[in-house]
Design a protein around this nucleic acid. Structure first.
Lengths: 344, 344
DNA sequence: CTGAAAGCGCTTACAG
DNA sequence: CTGAAAGCGCTTACAG
């Protein structure tokens, strides 16, 4: 691969065309005031005529790097069911545009993480900061991120360390509100289909569930909670075994809408009607939530806001502004058709 | 902003640490065979110990650019209803990984396009090729893309020119099949809610609609087609006026599922039952399609495959391999609950 | 207001 | 098997 300059016009070409030095072209393009209007105009014209644009890589090398913030996410799933990935891309992109920095999407997995450390990745890509999502506690990057001095916003990952900020919602109180709503409908035997055991949000959402019960003086039944792993099929199976064993349950709090869908299918297959026999309350408000089964009652999260907040936190850190180690975003209980007064 | 090297370890640091020249470090890292195993090992160890990784920008400058393919898309909408953007990101990403090149997401709009020409953008970002989607015929980039010598795959945009490839499905035959399915159910008075008038696919899908009618010797009624602009609300309104004027219509072919949803709402509001009174057939198979109204009968497209095919086409062009100017991907008629035998 | 020169962190002929 | 040197396309003190 010879370096024939590949026909690409460089700053040198523009300089030659106009008859000035590359220094002058560079300064004109960078908006320095010490270039005469006349030559500036000639340069700008030549730039347009020649379709020239400074190579961002070279600028970066030359000392004018464009700060770039990456969204680092785990392997992309076939479908973005909950719209979280798209939402966060969108939100971070917005924030980057507003702040004048570059956006980059980085997808990782364990194999990649073992090949290239987090720090190496940041150096390679020249990252100023990163918004992290979907990292598992066991992933190599998990610790590396925490131990790094790179400004990071972590979505739904407990943050600690220098330049780290955890973007989340108050999962405990959100779940508590949700379960309180069920209690308010007269339900007392309330089951829970939780996410993966290792996920931090699972612990938090279970805490909210427990609090709501305790506050209402409803005895806690440990066997009422099952792990659906955030997966429709697992939730389906768990719901079946749960309700076979505890047919007295009249309401189900699911830690995600995807699991709520699995749960509802299981209930229907068992001949139980939703919400007449069993109420089901989900979490996330995924795009399809309002369409399924006349609408799932759920706790809405705002993925775009998360992406935006993540970007904002990173920008603040880059500016040396103080950022709290945890940032809680709003959530919202959305009442739809899968919940109703307790009939039993 | 002083250039203090910002604590970043460079190839020089590694060379110093190991006691060799940067030339040797570079060659060891690039897998050249003419480095002794012993020094190579020492270098690799130092690299890990120091968390060094070559700056991609510098590599690019030095003569080893990583080819990068961008997904260029119009302004991101609040929600990716049809999952196309996510799907194409995913597909292109997969293809880039497989081909060993970098992925980049670029979002544009008219204002940006007027500021920076397509060629300038490509030079700035050092793009090897780009997969284009969502560009409107009137956008400044539309012509610039066609006139450029940059390898481009255009999703659902008629391609022409050097290194251009149009990725699409056979919209004519897909629509024809869809309408033939309605005809097979006994429908003869079939309306159509089309996309925007200026969109190329609108013309194609209308052609398929017309062909199906003609082949079945059903007279074409020009007033049976309305433009729903690919928008739910517009489709809603158009469906109302269409069915008020032509209550004899028993089936509706919609050029997108989003419009199908709008249409169904309009029908229900008019007291018409779907599919008993009016059958509705959509297009795309968006993620919610199978959940809404017991499932929308629709024509499935595969956005991931489109992204992948786009990336593949670009890679081929980069390799100097021949690529057809139009690549047609498969589609699939998915029969669900919004269509039924004609009852009138 | 303008230009020659150094430097950014790499890679790669070239010479040994 | 190894290193000194040139060059990639920029930016920015520095000197005029």
């Amino acid at each position: 691969m010879k370096k024939t300059n590949s026909g690409k016009v460089s700053i040198r070409d523009v300089a030659r065309e106009v008859g000035v030095s590359i220094t002058t072209v560079s300064r004109a393009l960078n908006g320095y005031s010490d270039v005469s209007e006349k030559t500036k105009k000639k340069i700008l014209e030549a730039v347009q005529r020649m379709d020239y644009a400074p190579d961002a890589n070279a600028r970066s090398m030359g000392g004018k790097p464009e700060p770039t913030i990456a969204l680092l996410t785990s392997e992309l799933k076939e479908r973005d069911e909950n719209g979280f990935v798209y939402g966060m891309i969108n939100g971070l992109f917005q924030q980057c545009s507003a702040f004048g920095c570059e956006f980059m999407l980085l997808v990782t997995n364990v194999v990649k993480q073992e090949k290239l450390s987090f720090l190496q990745l940041c150096k390679k890509k020249n990252l100023s900061g990163v918004v992290v999502t979907g990292l598992r506690t066991g992933d190599p990057y998990y610790k590396e991120v925490m131990n790094s001095d790179i400004p990071c916003a972590l979505i739904d990952i407990k943050a600690s360390g220098k330049y780290k900020c955890n973007i989340t919602i108050d999962n405990v109180s959100a779940s508590q509100k949700a379960v309180e709503y069920l209690i308010g409908l007269g339900h007392k035997k309330i089951g829970m289909i939780n996410g993966q055991k290792i996920a931090e949000v699972s612990g938090e959402r279970y805490s909210g569930y427990v609090s709501a019960l305790l506050n209402a003086k409803i005895p806690l039944h440990l066997d009422y909670m099952r792990y659906g792993d955030f997966v429709e099929d697992t939730a389906f199976a768990q719901t079946k075994t749960l309700l076979e064993k505890h047919p007295e349950i009249t309401a189900l709090f699911c830690a995600s809408d995807v699991m709520a869908i699995g749960a509802i299918q299981a209930l229907e297959e068992m001949g139980l009607r939703v919400p007449e026999d069993v109420s089901v309350l989900g979490f996330d408000d995924i795009p399809i939530a309002k369409y399924v089964y006349k609408g799932i009652t759920t706790v809405r999260q705002f993925p775009i806001a998360m992406g935006r907040a993540g970007g904002e936190a990173v920008c603040r850190m880059l500016n040396g502004e103080p950022v709290e180690s945890e940032l809680q975003l709003p959530y919202e209980l959305v009442v739809r058709g899968t919940t109703a007064e307790c009939g039993r």
